[in-house]
Simulated scan of single mutants.
Amino acid sequence: MAAASSMSSVFGAVPGRVNGLADVPGIAVGHAPARDDAGKPVSSGVTVVACPSGAVGAVDVRGGGPGTRETDLLKPSNSMQSVHAVALCGGSAFGLDAAGGVMAGLEERGIGFPVFGDAVPEGPLVPIVPAAVIFDLPVGSPADRPGADCGREALTAALGALDELPGVSGPAVNGCVGAGRAAT
């Protein structure tokens, strides 16, 4: 097996800053915890992979009880060519509500699929945000579920990392954060 230093030059690939998804230009990752009524973080959350310029997406849904939203758009037989974000959510099927917050946040920023094409730039936009959930209800309280606000917060974190906004620094964090807060 070749040494790691010689492998880094294969096809001109060079390890990124953190050797992760966030090293890909135009893609950012953001996390947010679900919050209780007082705003305190609880056991669930959301992770958003944002690609505001669009990226080709694909999916392979597995398991006996998948919880997904908009994943059928990613089948090769459908006409959608790109996604603007992917929402990975805790909260079981309840967590799919978080994708609505991601969509709303993208729409506010003028990011989405132009419904009437490029000929009508002021026409409506529909952000394409496939989402999937994990079953984390037995960890913490089953009432700890991410909603639209949590999805919007994770999107803001992702876009902040992408744009290097003030107050947001460093690469995407790993571990029990975002959708993985209660993952076991």
Rank of each mutant, 00 (worst) to 15 (best):
D72E: 07
G95D: 04
G140S: 00
V83D: 09
A148K: 11
G91F: 07
S77V: 15
H84Y: 02
N78L: 14
A99C: 01
A154N: 06
A143Y: 10
V86H: 02
G90E: 00
A161T: 12
D163I: 07
E153L: 07
S82V: 12
G91D: 09
C89I: 12
L74V: 05
A154G: 14
A157C: 09
P114M: 05
P130M: 13
L73H: 07
S92A: 10
L74F: 04
A98E: 06
Q81Y: 11
A157N: 05
T71W: 03
G151I: 09
G110Q: 01
V126C: 03
A119T: 14
D118T: 09
G95C: 12
G91S: 08
D118I: 13
P146Y: 00
M80A: 15
G91M: 08
E153A: 15
E122R: 13
I128C: 10
A93V: 10
A161K: 01
V115A: 09
F135N: 01
L96V: 03
A158R: 04
D144P: 05
V115I: 04
R109A: 15
R109N: 13
G105V: 05
L159P: 08
E107G: 14
P76K: 00
V102I: 03
N78R: 08
P121C: 07
A131L: 07
L106A: 06
E107I: 12
T156W: 01
F94C: 11
A104D: 15
